[in-house]
Design a protein around this nucleic acid. Structure first.
Length: 225
DNA sequence: AACCAGGAGACAT
DNA sequence: ATGTCTCATGGT
């Protein structure tokens, strides 16, 4: 099952110290900026925002879309993403831009998730990244890496879940929920997703796959040496 | 010089 | 329900 892969990855690569971001708000911004975009390009945009002193919700919320768009230019889709950030901030303002307020009013993640999904530009992956990495809810993030990983990973019947966001997510979440204490779930979902991303970036690059060093090589369908 | 990268929404079928 | 198009920069 997933736990086996999780343990293997963790013993080889972990711990991960994720999500890359100083503050919870920076994590939220990163989650939007990285939509269909490499993290390297996101980092440049984050540096620019940092130098503009704009990685603070109160400041960014007052920034005109056009200005914000120019600041995040390097992350691509800058006009869309500028609007999306401001839409997210419109919502976040209802909670005084504070994680603690969100957590207090929403004991569990479902209602927050619905609110996030109702924001234009926030889809399942972005919502779950924010829930897990910024707000600390026990939610497993399913991203493109996870789908690709599962497509080629042999572990008895799990391949059916590749491509189905909700199915894959609930399979991982229920399996982990049976194996870990509730107060540790967020940390494990956080770590598992981080490990899959790190695995992908380290060993599964299309340009130069380093499969011989991959800890999951034996169970990988397209393992090459 | 095409192809890809931690998506999401609008729209047509 | 399931495709297709758009958005756009920067690295390989």
């Amino acid at each position: 099952m997933f736990l086996e892969a999780y343990e293997t990855l963790h013993s080889h690569l972990g711990p991960s110290h994720w999500w890359p971001g100083e503050t919870s708000f920076e994590v939220m911004v990163g989650a939007v900026l990285t939509q269909n975009t490499s993290w390297k390009n996101v980092e440049k945009a984050l540096h620019r925002l940092s130098s503009e002193k704009a990685i603070r919700p109160e400041i960014m919320h007052k920034t005109p879309v056009g200005t914000l768009a120019q600041w995040i230019r390097s992350s691509g889709y800058f006009n869309q993403k500028a609007r999306r950030l401001l839409a997210l901030l419109d919502w976040y303002q209802n909670y005084d831009f504070r994680v603690e307020t969100v957590r207090r009013r929403h004991p569990d993640s479902e209602s927050v998730r619905r609110e996030l999904l109702s924001i234009s530009g926030i889809g399942p992956e972005t919502a779950d990244s924010i829930l897990c990495y910024a707000f600390g809810y026990p939610v497993f993030v399913v991203d493109a890496y996870t789908h690709r990983w599962l497509e080629r990973y042999d572990s008895g019947g799990h391949r059916a879940a590749a491509g189905n966001y909700h199915l894959l997510q609930s399979m991982v979440q229920s399996e982990f929920a049976h194996s870990f204490r509730a107060e540790e779930l967020t940390r494990h979902f956080n770590e598992f997703h981080a490990l899959i991303v790190r695995l992908s970036n380290l060993y599964c690059k299309k340009s130069s796959p380093l499969c011989r060093d991959c800890p999951l090589q034996r169970k990988c369908q397209n393992a090459r040496t």
